[in-house]
């Protein structure tokens, strides 16, 4: 199925729920309707380590925003702050027009955010189809008893989830693997399944923590294609953490560079590439 066909299967109301009156009028300039994410002065400590130092970042709807930096720079920590797994010591996170001191992680999908993990975080005991379907659980209206009783409406819901799983799987080229236990898939495909699980939730903001790590060149090209297609057909905003500079420069609209927890540069790929601080801290090897 083409990207456009996939797009048509998703109701507009789900993709673009109105930004309700929840706007905080005291928010700074970042509080514009097309803001997908705002981070303001985020500080995060682990004991004596300052993992994030006064990091601010904004992300517009439909934008692919790379976050790069050397190992231990704080990239994953940033994603964990956005997804509520870490509670920042200072600063706030603006999501869906609302400001949070700490994002409630169990309500993340309702806030329109889905993520993948740097190390695979699939459910090895489930099939590919079930893993993807798990991303839709938060929308289910029928609970345990309705399913035990076999209520027709509950069955219908299950069928519609199956359809949606089929669509996403087709979109990512996973259709022939749906019934396999996910743990038996090669690593590259498992990365795709994780992306599928995130997409089935129909998020507006997608957080990808090193989606290409460990992939072969072919798989990387495929994943790059998927990320681009996702943005183009679904209009998702994407935070992309990636070490492969080629991929980053190719895919992203803007790039933020972290080093030792501080944001040392932020701009278009071309700007960042020229930045002397970035060259010193990170790109040095590649630029030389």
């Amino acid at each position: 199925m083409t990207s456009a066909a996939f797009l048509r299967t998703i109701p507009a109301a789900v993709l673009l729920p109105e930004f309700s009156a929840a706007f905080d009028t005291t928010l700074p300039r970042a509080a514009v309707p097309d803001l997908a994410l705002g981070l303001e002065g985020i500080e995060l400590h682990f004991g004596g380590i300052r993992a994030l130092k006064d990091v601010s970042l904004d992300l517009r709807a439909g934008e692919i925003r790379a976050v790069i930096g050397p190992n231990g720079a704080g990239k994953s920590s940033l994603v964990n702050v956005i997804s509520g797994l870490y509670r920042p010591d200072r600063g706030r996170i603006v999501l869906n027009g609302r400001a949070f001191a700490h994002v409630p992680s169990q309500r993340l999908p309702q806030l329109g955010v889905a993520r993948t993990f740097q190390n695979l975080a699939l459910f090895p005991g489930l099939t590919v189809a079930q893993n993807i379907a798990s991303g839709w659980v938060f929308r289910r209206r029928f609970g345990l008893l309705a399913h035990l009783a076999g209520l027709p409406a509950a069955r219908r819901e299950t069928r519609s989830v199956d359809d949606r799983v089929d669509q996403v799987a087709a979109f990512l080229g996973l259709s022939s693997h749906l019934d396999r236990p996910v743990a038996t898939l090669p690593y590259g495909l498992q990365k795709q399944v994780e992306l599928a699980r995130a997409l089935v939730a129909e998020p507006r903001l997608l957080l990808l923590d090193e989606p290409m790590a460990g992939l072969t060149a072919t798989e990387k090209a495929e994943m790059t294609g998927h990320i681009r297609a996702v943005r183009e057909s679904l209009g998702l905003a994407v935070i992309l953490i990636e070490h492969d500079i080629g991929v980053v420069m190719d895919l992203s609209d803007r790039v933020a560079v972290l080093d030792h927890g501080s944001k040392i540069a932020d701009g278009t790929p071309a700007e960042v590439r020229r930045d002397p601080d970035v060259i010193r801290a990170y790109l040095g090897a590649e630029a030389a």
């Binding site: 997804s83 509520g84 797994l85 992680s105 169990q106 309500r107 993340l108 999908p109 309702q110 889905a114 993520r115 993990f117 975080a121 699939l122 459910f123 090895p124 005991g125 489930l126 079930q130 798990s134 991303g135 659980v137 938060f138 699980r197 995130a198 939730a201």
Partner: peptide
């Protein structure tokens, strides 16, 4: 099974 296999990712996908 999701809760058993990976509680953190189960939580962030809204299980």
């Amino acid at each position: 099974i999701a809760v058993r296999d990976n509680e953190t990712s189960a939580r962030v996908i809204g299980i």
